[in-house]
């Protein structure tokens, strides 16, 4: 579905991602794990087009996204939940979700989004900036889902969220995958969350994927050793 080949990203002279290859299958949840500074966020930002890539190609269902701007990539079927959530603080909860609807030309927030996140319906007239961290994370996911993505990119969704909600979020993301038949790429540091959610686990180090295994035969200790400082 999503095919990334020979992908390279650099800030000035320092190359962050070098010649990375990644294939995401239909209906698959892929977790990218790695320590800080190894290129997870840069990978995510460059896939959505926030950070320009230097070489390589990104394609979705055989549509080449490489030359597209962010908003065109979103319309082509990528959804993005950034690190730190980045909801629009002065817009109300409902307006936040509606910004995502523009990409697909809809006007009303679909019912199923509120069913997925009932708390957002309760708070639809509050300003996004006044929500708690966990609620903002749900809002960011709902906003991304409003664009009806085929592949959902999440950058460290568990950052700053209490452990009990992390487990719930893993269940919600799997439910989203099952109900909507989309693929999910998630970058993460919390191993328990990764083991709960992922079909396949990739370890990123110095801008390239150095190790990958399916969840069934994943060796937690080995992955943990990659995450250890």
């Amino acid at each position: 579905m999503l095919k990334v080949s020979n992908h390279s990203v650099a800030y000035g002279q320092s190359t962050i991602i070098r010649g990375l290859n990644l294939d995401v299958n239909d209906n698959e949840i892929v977790a990218v794990v790695g320590r800080n500074g190894m290129g997870k966020t840069t990978l995510m930002k460059s896939l959505i087009g926030m950070t320009p890539s230097r070489a390589g190609s990104v394609s979705l269902n055989h549509t080449d996204l490489s030359a597209m701007k962010s908003f065109q990539r979103v319309r082509a079927g990528l959804g993005f939940v950034p690190q730190g959530r980045m909801i629009f603080p002065a817009l109300t909860v409902r307006e936040n979700i509606e910004t995502g609807l523009a990409a697909v030309g809809e006007k009303k927030v679909p019912r199923d989004l509120y069913e997925l996140f009932p708390v957002l319906e309760e708070m639809q007239h509050r300003r996004g900036g006044n929500l708690s961290g966990g609620q903002q994370q749900q809002l960011a996911i709902a906003r991304a889902l409003a664009t009806r993505p085929k592949v959902l990119l999440l950058d460290e969704p568990t950052e700053g969220i209490q452990p009990s909600i992390i487990q719930e979020m893993a269940r919600t993301l799997k439910r989203i995958r099952d109900e909507r038949g989309l693929s999910i790429v998630v970058s993460e540091q919390v191993l328990s969350f990764v083991m709960e959610i992922a079909d396949r686990i990739l370890v990123i180090e110095k801008g390239d994927i150095v190790h990958q295994e399916d969840k069934e035969d994943a060796d937690q200790n080995k992955i943990a050793s990659y995450l250890a400082v």
Partner: peptide, 16 residues
């Protein structure tokens, strides 16, 4: 208003 508050993020939810 979305563009004002966060230009790159507005673009990443599909706003031109």
């Amino acid at each position: 208003r979305a563009v004002v508050q966060n230009r790159p993020m507005a673009e990443a939810v599909g706003i031109n």
